[in-house]
Design a protein around this nucleic acid. Structure first.
Lengths: 466, 466
DNA sequence: CGATTTGTACGTTCACATTTT
DNA sequence: AAAAATGTGAACGTACAAATC
C-alpha cells in the first residue's frame, strides 16, 4: 500500500491502478501510449517522476522504468536524467511526409519535389536502355548487386561528389529512404541510440520509431550539429551512430563547412560511431564536395541518390559502406529487397556514363539558383544565397505549428512548420520549411511567396498592433 | 564462489570466467556467439543447463537466461523447456539463397528460377507502357500507393487467385521478400514469436534473425503444418503470428488441402494470430485456389507476387492486409520503400488488364507439368504429379548436408540439402530440394536429373554393399 | 559546492510450466 | 504418478550518474 495519499498532489498523469493488468510494465506502457495518442497528454508535458508514479501505483520503480522505456523506443517519450520524462513532440501522430494528393488545390511549398519538369530526360533514357539492351537480361534474378557496368557508373557518380569507394563496398538500393532502412535494420538493433540534429528529416524519425531505435537530439548552429554537444552525449549515453545531412540538410537547409566536418569526424572516430551520411543534395554543393565520410572512411555509410539530382521515379540510390560492413549490408539488402530493378539501375548507369546526368544537374542548379534569388527578393538575408531546394524561415512566436499550417492552407499554400521535424525538447525558435522546387514554374512559386509574405506581414501587424 | 568444482563434469561449453566483462549478460552472449560462429560449438550441440552454467561462472541464473535469450533472438540457439538449450542449425552461417554467379558452371537445380525464357513477354510490355504513357507521370513521387488503374489490376490478379480484397487494403511492394520485410517490421516487434513449418524458406529465417524475431518450428505432415501442434505451441508460448506457404510450400513442395486450411484458420482465429500467407505459387494451384486468408480475413496478410508467375526482374508484389492494419502497413511501406517504381507497377497492371499474364501463366503451367513428368520418370512416386517448381526428394541418411552438396557440385549439379531450411531440432529424415524450373531447357534438366539419379544410386550401393 | 531529484540499467529473486526420469 | 531437471520472464533491489536547487 502506498504510504502517503497522493490525491492532493498535482500529478500530470494519474493512471487508474485498477486498469493495470499483468505484465504490469506492458500494461502501464499501453495506458500511457493511449493517453498520449488520444491527446490527454500533450507534447512536452512533464510526467510524474518514476519514483512518484511507482509509489502511487504501489509497484516497483524498475517496473515504471521499463514501461517508460517501451514508450520511449516507440517515440512517445523523451527523458533527461535529473530533469524528468516528457511527452515527445509529434508523439503518436503521423509526421511522415508523402505525396498523396495527385491534384492538390494548393501551391506546393511543403513537400520537396525535385523539379519534376526535367524528368523527361530520364523517360527517354529508359526507352533507350530497353531498346538497346539485347533481351531478357534486365528481367531475371541475375546480378542482384549490380553488373560491372552498373557499379562503375555508381563509382563515377560518387567520384563527382568527392567520394572514392571501392567496387566491393558499393550497393544499390531502391532510393535513399530504402538505404536508410537497410542501414538501420542491418547495423543497428532494438534499443540502440542514434544522434541527430534537433530538427531532422521527419521520415527518418518515423523509421527510427518503427524500428525502436532511440534518437538523441543534438543542438545545431548555422553550420549544423555542434561537435561539443555530440561529444557530450556520446560520453553520457551509449550512442552507436549519428545521422547527418551535411549538404543542405533537411529541413534546416544548413550547409556544413569543412571545418565543421573535420570536428565532427574526429568525434565520430573517437567514439567509434557509425556515421549515416545522407548526401542526397551533394550535387548542389557550391564548391567541391568533401563528404564527411572521406574524413572518417572506417565509420561512414554514404548515401547518394538519383531521386533529387535526376528523377525520383526511378527509385535508385547508391550506398557506400566501410569494408567491414559490406557482408552484412549485402545480406541486409537481399533480405529487404532481393534486388533493385535492373531496368532502373541500368538506366541510371546509362545516364551517368553518357553524361546525361551532367546536363540534368546543370539545369537543376540553374533553376535552383533562380528560385533562391526569387526567395531572396521576398525574404532577404545577409547570408550568401544558397542553392538549396528548400529554405528555413524564422517566424515570430505567437503563431504555432498546425494552426499555422492550416492558416496557410486557407490561403492556398502547403508548407510545414518546424515542429514536424523536432526530436527532443521544445525549441526556442520557430521556423517554416519552404520548398522552392515543387511548383512546375517560377511564376507559381512567386505567387506562393507573395501569399506567404502577406500572411506573415498580416500576422506581424496583428501581434505588434494589438 | 562456486561450491563444487566442475572440472570433472563434462560440460559441453566452458567459457573462461576471466573473459567475462560488464554487462555480464551481453559479454556472455558475445562469447557464446563467437564460439558458435567459429565452429567450436556445432549445430544441435546441447549446452549446459542455465543453472549449471550460472553456478560454474558464479553468476545469477537470470543473467544466463538473458544472455541465452540474446543469442536465441539472433538465431544462434533454440531451447526447449525441460530438455535444454541447443545450438541452432545454420547458426551464424549465411543460408540465404541468392543468385550471384552470372555464369555458373553447374546445372542449376538449387536456386529456383521461374522459367526465365518467358521474360520477353514482360520486356515487350515495359516497352509498350513507356511508349503509350503520355509523359513524365511514371517518374515522379506521385501516387506512392498506386493509381486506380494499378489497384484495379492488383484486385483482378487477386480475384483470379480466389481473394477479394478491398481497394484500401491492397498495397504494392518491390517483390514478395520486400512484402515480408514490411510485414515483419511493421506488425511485429523485437522478441515476438512466429510459428513456421519446421522446414521453411531460408530467406525468411534470415530475415527473422536480422529483426530479432523468434521462429517457433511446428511439425509438418504431407499437407503441411499440423494444426494440433500449432495449437499446442500457441498455448505454451506467446506466439503472435504464423508464416505459411499453402500452395507448393518452399522448400517442401507441400500442397495444402481445404480441410487443412480450415483447421489452421480456426486456430489462427482462436489465438488471434497474424497470418502471413506467402502465396507466390498460387497461380500453379491445381484447382480453384482458396487462400487461407479467405478463411480468416481478419488475420490474414496475403502476398501475391509477379516474380514467379510472370517475371522476377520487374520487382512487383501485391500485399493485401486486414483493414485494421492498413494505416500501419502504408506507413511501413513508405518508411522502407517510399514507393514501388511506377514503371514496374504500371507494366504489371498493363499485363494483367490486357490478358498477357494469363498467356504467360498458361505457358508456365504447361512447362511445369512437363518438367514434373520428367522428374517422375527418374523418381516415381504414388502421389499425383504436382505442378511445383521444385521437388523435395527423400534421401538415405548416411549422406549429410554440405558434404552432399559439395559432392553434387563435383558432378556439376547445384542443389540444396534440407538442413538449409531447418528451423529447430534435427529432423529424422533428410531431403534434397530440386528445382525443376531453373534450367533454360528440359534437355538440360533431364541431364541434371540423370546425374542426380546416378549420384544417389551410386551412394546407395556404397551403403548397402559395404 | 553539496544535497536532492531524477532517470538508467544491471543483476537478483522467485513463481511457474513443461519435460524428463 | 511423483520428483527432478530445465527454461521463462515478470518484478524487485540497488548502485550510479546527470541535472537541478
Amino acid at each position: 500500500m502506498p504510504i502517503n495519499s497522493f490525491e492532493n498532489y498535482p500529478m500530470s498523469w494519474k493512471p487508474e491502478k485498477g486498469n493495470l493488468s499483468h505484465p504490469l510494465y506492458v500494461s502501464l506502457a499501453k495506458l500511457l501510449k493511449r493517453d498520449i495518442k488520444n491527446g490527454t497528454l500533450q507534447p512536452h508535458t512533464k510526467l510524474p517522476p518514476q519514483r512518484e508514479l511507482a509509489d502511487y501505483l504501489d509497484i516497483n520503480l524498475s517496473t515504471v522504468t521499463k514501461a517508460f522505456k517501451l514508450c520511449q523506443l516507440d517515440g512517445y517519450l523523451y527523458a533527461i536524467t535529473g530533469r524528468g520524462t516528457f511527452v515527445s513532440p509529434n508523439a503518436g501522430v503521423s509526421i511522415s511526409i508523402q505525396d498523396t494528393n495527385i491534384d492538390s488545390p494548393f501551391i506546393e511549398m511543403g513537400i520537396i519535389k525535385p523539379l519534376d519538369f526535367l524528368n523527361h530526360y530520364t523517360q527517354d533514357a529508359v526507352k533507350t536502355v530497353l531498346l538497346k539492351t539485347p533481351n531478357e537480361s534486365l528481367l531475371n534474378y541475375s546480378a542482384p548487386f549490380g553488373t560491372a557496368f552498373q557499379k562503375s557508373a555508381a563509382i563515377k557518380w560518387c567520384y563527382q561528389l568527392g567520394l572514392h569507394p571501392k567496387v566491393e563496398n558499393i550497393f544499390f538500393t531502391t532510393g535513399a529512404q530504402n538505404a536508410l532502412a537497410v542501414i538501420l535494420v542491418t547495423l543497428f538493433h532494438h534499443g540502440d541510440k542514434i544522434a541527430t540534429d534537433e530538427f531532422t528529416y521527419s521520415n527518418f524519425i518515423e523509421l527510427a520509431n518503427m524500428l525502436n531505435i532511440q534518437l538523441v537530439p543534438i543542438p545545431i548552429d548555422e553550420f549544423g550539429m555542434i561537435p561539443e554537444d555530440l561529444d557530450l552525449q556520446c560520453r553520457q549515453q551509449g550512442i552507436r551512430g549519428v545521422y547527418l545531412m551535411p549538404t543542405y540538410s533537411n529541413p534546416t537547409g544548413t550547409l556544413m563547412d569543412v571545418c565543421r566536418k573535420s570536428a565532427l569526424a574526429k568525434i565520430i572516430k573517437n567514439h567509434h560511431l557509425i556515421l549515416i551520411e545522407d548526401d542526397i543534395y551533394a550535387f548542389l554543393s557550391p564548391k567541391e564536395n568533401i563528404p564527411l565520410t572521406t574524413l572518417c572512411p572506417q565509420n561512414g555509410c554514404y548515401i547518394a541518390s538519383f531521386s533529387k539530382a535526376i528523377c525520383p521515379g526511378l527509385r535508385v540510390a547508391f550506398l557506400s559502406v566501410p569494408h567491414r560492413f559490406s557482408p552484412q549490408i549485402s545480406k541486409g539488402i537481399y533480405n529487404i529487397n532481393v534486388k533493385t530493378s535492373s531496368i532502373s539501375v541500368e538506366t541510371a548507369a546509362y545516364m551517368i556514363h553518357n553524361g546525361i546526368t551532367d546536363q540534368v544537374i546543370e539545369k537543376k542548379r540553374q533553376e535552383a539558383t533562380a528560385r533562391n534569388l526569387l526567395f531572396h527578393q521576398f525574404f532577404p538575408s545577409k547570408k550568401p544565397i544558397p542553392l538549396s531546394f528548400s529554405r528555413w524561415l524564422p517566424i515570430p512566436l505567437p503563431l504555432t505549428d498546425l494552426p499555422l499550417e492550416r492558416l496557410a492552407q486557407e490561403k492556398g499554400l502547403n508548407l510545414f512548420h518546424s515542429n514536424r521535424f523536432l526530436v527532443g525538447p521544445p525549441h526556442g525558435k520557430q521556423f517554416l520549411r519552404i520548398s522552392l522546387t515543387s511548383t512546375d514554374t517560377k511564376e507559381e512559386l512567386e505567387s506562393g511567396l507573395k501569399r506567404l509574405d502577406a500572411l506573415l506581414k498580416d500576422n506581424e501587424r496583428r501581434i505588434t498592433g494589438s
